[in-house]
């Protein structure tokens, strides 16, 4: 079960894998803005080229991305279909029936949205596949640092996050064990109507809560025994370093941004 959440990371040693996690987080965030900026076929073509380049640099096989898109395929198809059927009138009308219009404008737009979906999902999948969860957490904590100025307890949150990530696989195994134990006693998970399914989860949830809380108690006592008092006033063992290749990625990003801005005008 823990495969679902953390097995997505692919331990390869490509240049993308070795990038600073902070950099990758920022880049994938800014990439979404880039996708929103694109508005014609040429700009989408540029984006596709950059995305394929990033995938190539990561040496992750393409079929793994296809697998990542599969769970979202219904949302994508649903959106594209809606866009096709209910688009405002514009351009050549291919088909018309009461309030359903399939127009040239609709077809083109549906195509753009499809590509937009694919691009955003591919890039975020690339981030997950090429970055270890703990690195994502460290990167995130470091990116949140400026929030200290508005008195957000960044260090405490970073501590909570690293505890949370450490215990996800443990609790996942625990959940699996409890489920099997309850199955052995005759509980059917995932059978029957909605209410019945929800009810069947109670014998899973309650023991899971107790077990999580007991672990929390033990862990907090052990932490205090080792001299933990508060989240500030501590030093750091995991240190991220910004390297030249991180700067280079931003040069490439700037190039992409410039190209897309030119295309928008064009």
């Amino acid at each position: 079960m823990s495969k679902f959440l953390f097995g997505r990371y692919l331990p390869l040693n490509s240049i993308v894998h070795r990038l600073d996690p902070r950099n990758k987080l920022l880049l994938s965030f800014c990439y979404i803005i880039l996708v929103f900026l694109a508005n014609n076929w040429l700009s989408y073509l540029i984006l596709i080229a950059f995305t394929l380049g990033a995938i190539r640099a990561s040496t992750i096989p393409l079929r793994i991305f296809v697998r990542g898109i599969r769970p979202l395929i219904w949302l994508i198809l649903f959106t594209v279909a809606l866009q096709l059927l209910f688009s405002p009138t514009g351009g050549h009308v291919y088909f018309h029936w009461t309030f359903i219009n399939v127009t040239q404008y609709g077809v083109v737009n549906a195509g753009y949205i499809f590509i937009r979906f694919l691009l955003i999902i591919t890039m975020s999948t690339l981030l997950t596949l090429s970055t270890q969860p703990l690195d994502i957490a460290t990167g995130l904590a470091s990116l949140m640092k400026p929030l200290r100025w508005v008195r957000v307890p960044v260090d405490t949150l970073a501590m909570m996050l690293s505890i949370a990530l450490r215990f996800v696989p443990t609790l996942m195994d625990e959940a699996q064990k409890i489920m099997n134990a309850q199955r052995a006693r005759g509980v059917d998970f995932g059978e029957g109507g909605l209410i019945k399914q929800a009810k069947a989860l109670l014998p899973l949830m309650v023991p899971l809560f107790i077990s999580a809380f007991n672990r929390a108690e033990d862990l907090s006592i052990a932490m205090e025994a080792r001299g933990y008092q508060d989240s500030e006033h501590r030093s750091q063992y995991r240190i991220l370093t910004w390297q030249r290749r991180d700067t280079v990625t931003w040069l490439i990003f700037a190039l992409g941004l410039a190209l897309i801005l030119i295309c928008r005008r064009w």
Partner: peptide, 25 residues
């Protein structure tokens, strides 16, 4: 926060990430 509250919050966050994987319906 005392340590117990902080750690409890961390574990509840972990639990939330775990539970988001189990869906009903």
């Amino acid at each position: 926060l005392d340590t117990l509250s902080m750690v409890t919050m961390g574990l509840l966050m972990a639990l939330q990430l775990v539970i988001s994987r189990f869906s009903v319906g």
